[in-house]
């Protein structure tokens, strides 16, 4: 019973704040709701027994990406933005795309309506460490290269060019 209460309240928090991210007129508010929604997803990870993923979600998303997005939104914001509509005029077509995608997604989800948990959750951090530094060493090193490239790209794009 406690599992269901935890899952449904976290799902409600995540979906409601995700809707607020998409529909809120004020971009600063929607970046705050993004942090809330990401924290809800972290709770979902905890309810799935993925302990390291929970920690990584809090560290990378809630305290990294959400704060970064908030800074950029505040840097680029303008008072007049609050009076402009933030949604373009093709929202009907977008709703149609979502409806078509929803049919497929929920058809796939229904296939697993009988799949229940068979084993108790156990801490996975140790196994993830062994996997990353053993079998998956090459992808692990490659992903650090991707991060380095992203870092250099960010520096390259944001640098101000000197007037020559």
């Amino acid at each position: 019973m406690i599992d269901q209460i935890v899952f449904y309240s976290l799902a409600l928090l995540t979906v409601a704040s995700a809707l607020a991210v998409v529909l809120h007129r004020n971009t600063v508010h929607s970046s705050l709701f993004l942090g809330l929604s990401l924290a809800g997803v972290a709770g979902i990870y905890a309810s799935l027994g993925a302990d390291f993923l929970f920690g990584a979600q809090i560290m990378v998303y809630v305290s990294g990406i959400a704060v970064l997005v908030m800074f950029v939104v505040m840097l680029l914001g303008r008072a007049s933005d609050l009076h402009l509509r933030q949604v373009n005029e093709r929202w009907m077509a977008a709703l149609l795309v979502c409806a078509v995608a929803a049919v497929g997604l929920f058809k796939v989800a229904r296939l697993h309506a009988g799949t229940v948990v068979t084993a108790a959750a156990k801490p996975g951090t140790h196994d993830i460490g062994r996997l990353f530094l053993g079998e998956w060493l090459l992808p692990f090193e490659l992903i650090s290269l991707v991060l380095l490239a992203a870092l250099l790209g960010a520096v390259f794009f944001t640098r101000t060019e000197k007037a020559s």
Binding site: V21, V22, T27, V69, D81, Q86, V87, W91, C98, L105
Partner: peptide
């Protein structure tokens, strides 16, 4: 959550959105 994301990516006018 994915559908909400698709809807937002298709309809928001603001790039940060």
């Amino acid at each position: 959550l994915f559908l909400i994301g698709i809807f937002g990516a298709l309809t928001r006018r603001n790039i940060s959105g």
